[in-house]
């Protein structure tokens, strides 16, 4: 049956969710240093703000500011298990399009390197809407961070004329000591080959994220570019 929404969903299942589930512990071991803009946003929050980390991965941003309370969520239960170590925060397995949170209830939300994994413009705008909907009116703020198409300085070297929808390889190096199983990090003693996984990304061009924010009923408060990524701090537009 051709149901475009269902097709995109199963496409993302195969080319995003299944991959993260498999590479979780290796991915996590490479993700420890917070990017400056995200650190600045989290540290500037009033003490004891309550917010969400949507697509929290291994939970590296849960540890940035111990004086806020964050409920993190991710599609990958293997990553959520790793993230659950960050007290006093909370985590759950959830999809960005079906978040288990009350509407208009949170002081802030961050969604870092998540929205670019949705495979159609409609689903990306829906994802942004889903983030914005969790925010309190007036003072709620969301930080959304996505991979940029314009990465001339990176080893990937993409430029604004390149294809925006790409499969990006993730190479897990085979260890000399023994193969490390991605899901649980256990070694089985056998030498291992490198394994390559491919994840789907939509690379954002300049101004595109701002467009998605506005299409989703948000207002851009601040926006910029940081090391191969576009970011926006947004709030909900005033109720009409």
């Amino acid at each position: 049956m051709s149901n475009p929404a269902k097709q995109s969903e199963s496409y993302e299942d195969e080319h995003v969710h299944a991959v993260y589930e498999q590479i979780a512990s290796h991915f996590s071991s490479t993700r420890y240093k917070p990017w400056p803009i995200i650190e600045r946003f989290l540290k500037a929050l009033p003490d004891y703000s309550v917010g969400l980390d949507i697509g929290c991965g291994n939970g590296k941003y849960l540890a940035v500011n111990p004086k806020v309370f964050i409920v993190g969520s991710d599609r990958s239960s293997n990553l959520v298990r790793i993230a659950s170590r960050h007290q006093p925060h909370a985590v759950a397995v959830a999809d960005i399009l079906d978040l288990p949170h009350a509407l208009h209830a949170f002081d802030f939300a961050i969604s870092i390197a998540v929205v670019h994994h949705l495979s159609t413009p409609e689903r990306r705008i829906e994802a942004v809407r889903s983030i914005l909907e969790t925010l309190r009116f007036e003072d709620g703020r969301a930080l959304v961070y996505v991979w940029a198409l314009e990465q001339e300085g990176s080893r990937r070297g993409w430029t604004e004329d390149d294809e925006q929808d790409v499969m990006v390889p993730w190479v897990m190096k085979g260890s000399k000591k023994g193969r490390s199983s991605a899901a649980n990090g256990e070694c089985d003693g056998k030498p291992a080959e490198d394994q390559t996984f491919h994840r789907y990304y939509h690379l954002y061009h300049k101004g595109e994220l701002e467009g998605d924010i506005e299409a989703a009923g948000g207002t851009v408060v601040e926006a910029g570019y940081e090391k191969d990524n576009w970011w926006v701090i947004a709030k909900r537009a005033k109720a009409a």
Binding site: E9, S84, A94, D95, D98
Partner: peptide, 18 residues
């Protein structure tokens, strides 16, 4: 009903409920 296992709740919906 959403399952909680090993202390973690799972809110992924079966596709017919989305």
């Amino acid at each position: 009903e959403y399952a909680v296992k090993e202390g973690i709740a799972n809110f992924l919906l079966p596709s017919h409920m989305v």
